[in-house]
């Protein structure tokens, strides 16, 4: 048995060098100025209330991520529900169709939205065609969201919707059918069964869906760069910019630390909510 534990050594060493040390390095750099001496300037600059450029970007990142997550939930829950009611035979195939798009490079898929959304893009051509045959009272407005915050939200929803649907779906198919039948036998209407039985039992899926959507949405820099143009930079763009363009690694590290803390706090809140909830439902 002792010898088997030796199998841990390579991984422990690897994890120490490539997981723990790099995170400590970010912390270290975030407290250094360009000459390498200790400073709090990087954090002070971020939280500077007299010139809150960076706080505004952080606020925008959180705002767009929350909007995207809410839209994903509103669109994704019904889809997961419909999916879970399908016969088991075809369920596997249909849920496979949700994962399939992820096998195409996500940069390209996002880039493809540019062809669809542009002022002279495919969606507007289609609208123009409809307007050609519709009477003037029913004219459709053209879509002009490219390089706005809404384009970023659309990109987020598009890329992360499967991450919302799949966890909810996984929980929904595990719900004990006899609970639903019991509620029906006791005279609950369909809406009531959903509100009182199905939805509360699916909350753990909703919670993991929310964290799997919110996290990548708040940290992305690609989607905002491609669809949002230059004006809708997010915190991810700021960090990328410090490392790849400006070269101020100290400030970039400080922003990464802030992002890390933000994510850990969010996860903590979400998970606490989940454990309170599942604990509560057992007691009921």
């Amino acid at each position: 048995m002792k010898r088997i534990k030796l199998a841990l050594i390579p991984y422990s060493a690897y994890a120490l060098i490539f997981i723990v040390a790099p995170i400590l390095l970010i912390l270290l750099y975030s407290f250094q100025d360009s000459s390498g001496s200790f400073t709090l300037e990087n954090y002070a600059r971020f939280f500077d209330l007299s010139d809150p450029v960076y706080l505004k970007v952080l606020w925008r990142s959180i705002k767009l991520a929350v909007i995207s997550t809410v839209i994903c939930l509103i669109l994704g829950y019904p889809m997961a529900y419909i999916l879970s009611r399908l016969p088991a035979r075809i369920r596997g195939t249909v849920s496979f169709l949700f994962i399939l798009p992820m096998w195409m490079n996500f940069l390209l898929r996002t880039y493809s939205w540019m062809s669809l959304l542009e002022r002279t893009g495919l969606i507007n051509s289609l609208i123009g065609w409809f307007n050609g045959i519709l009477p003037s009272a029913l004219q459709l407005p053209t879509l002009d969201i490219m390089y706005t915050q809404w384009a970023v939200v659309l990109g987020n929803v598009y890329n992360f919707l499967p991450f919302m649907i799949l966890p909810i779906y996984t929980v929904l198919i595990k719900i004990d059918k006899s609970l639903i039948e019991a509620a029906q036998d006791l005279g609950a209407s369909r809406g009531r069964v959903f509100r009182k039985v199905i939805f509360p039992l699916s909350l753990s899926g909703v919670v993991s869906g929310i964290s799997m959507t919110f996290m990548p949405a708040v940290t992305t820099f690609v989607i905002s760069r491609l669809l949002g143009g230059g004006q809708n930079a997010l915190i991810g763009d700021m960090i990328e910019n410090q490392f790849k363009v400006v070269g101020d690694w100290g400030f970039g590290s400080a922003m990464s630390v802030i992002l890390m803390v933000l994510i850990l706090l969010t996860m903590n809140v979400i998970q606490r909510y989940e454990s309170e909830n599942s604990g509560g439902s057992v007691l009921m």
């Binding site: 790099p22 970010i26 996860m267």
Partner: peptide, 23 residues
């Protein structure tokens, strides 16, 4: 060890990328 293992999955890709760049 499991906690350390879940760190790269919990962390944003951008933070993991930068931390490795620093290393």
């Amino acid at each position: 060890l499991m906690n350390v293992t879940s760190l790269p999955m919990l962390n944003a890709d951008i933070v993991t990328g930068i931390s490795l760049l620093l290393l």
